[in-house]
């Protein structure tokens, strides 16, 4: 009986370790879905190790990690969540780094609607401007910094011309469907291979809003995992990963 219990216990202990040898689970903020798939594919080609990617909002990931989720690495959509995890002891100390920086864009699904200086935002021809909720999304907060700087927040709000998406994905959908003529969205949502994919855009100058930092952190459970460390290094330093990140419309610190 004792032997059987020992055998079962060792099996239970051995299973996760065996699964971690080649495969490791990475929590990726939904806005970084496409580039992370490409980077994971390149990493697998070069090393044979496979990053299994999960996509969700950063807030959900935080709740899941606090409740025992099997993730080894978090690629967050902000810098606050990884910092909080590190502070609370849920992450490997000193493993936090910025892997991408977001760029804010004023975008319309219509060709030629947005001018090269963003002057359209000050005019009356558009009925609705879509932004992400500033309390929930860093891009939303950045959008309001621009509106505040241009003293547009109060007039647009009192005219009820601002529509709010829960996250940057929803703000994009509101604009993409044409319900809002303009949207303050992420450049990465409309950028393919470094070019505007469709519609018209004004890239908001970086000095008009605080940097949108997306930070990564290695989680406590993988503190001694060399493969996860290798993937984090690959994401941070390899020319291939940096090229992919830039091609999707992010900048690098």
């Amino acid at each position: 009986m004792k032997k059987l219990v020992l055998l079962l216990a060792s099996l239970l202990l051995a299973c996760p370790a065996a699964a971690l040898a080649d495969e490791f689970q990475v929590a990726v903020a939904a806005n970084f879905t496409a580039p992370s798939k490409d980077i994971a594919a390149e990493f697998e080609k070069e090393t044979g190790h496979r990053a299994v990617l999960s996509f969700d909002s950063t807030g959900n990931f935080y709740a899941q990690i606090k409740n025992g989720a099997p993730f080894t690495l978090l690629l967050a959509a902000d810098s606050a969540t990884p910092a909080k995890l590190e502070e609370e002891g849920g992450a490997k100390p000193g493993s936090r780094f910025t892997y991408a920086q977001g760029a804010l864009a004023l975008w319309s699904a219509r060709e030629g609607y947005v001018d090269s200086q963003g002057e359209v935002l000050k005019g009356d021809q558009f009925k609705f401007l879509a932004v992400a909720d500033p309390k929930l999304a860093p891009y939303g907060a950045a959008a309001y910094e621009l509106l505040d700087a241009w003293k547009l927040t109060a007039p647009l709000q009192s005219a009820q011309r601002i529509v709010t998406g829960n996250n940057i994905g929803q703000a994009f959908q509101l604009t993409e469907s044409g319900q809002a003529e303009l949207g303050l969205i992420a450049w990465s949502q409309v950028c393919r291979d470094g070019q505007l994919s469709r519609g018209s855009v004004w890239l908001v100058p970086a000095d008009l809003y605080s940097p949108i930092l997306q930070d990564a952190v290695i989680l406590k459970s993988a503190a001694d995992n060399a493969v996860v460390q290798a993937f984090a290094d690959y994401l941070k330093n390899s020319p291939k990963a940096r090229e992919i990140i830039l091609s999707y419309g992010y900048t690098l610190p």
């Binding site: 990617l53 969700d56 899941q64 993730f71 994905g169 959908q173 949502q189």
Partner: peptide, 21 residues
């Protein structure tokens, strides 16, 4: 937790596609 082949069901797969546009 949206883990492929383990818990990524149909509705989550649609979510991933919408997020990647």
């Amino acid at each position: 937790g949206n883990i492929p082949n383990v818990t990524r069901v149909l509705s989550m797969q649609i979510y991933v596609y919408v997020e990647t546009i």
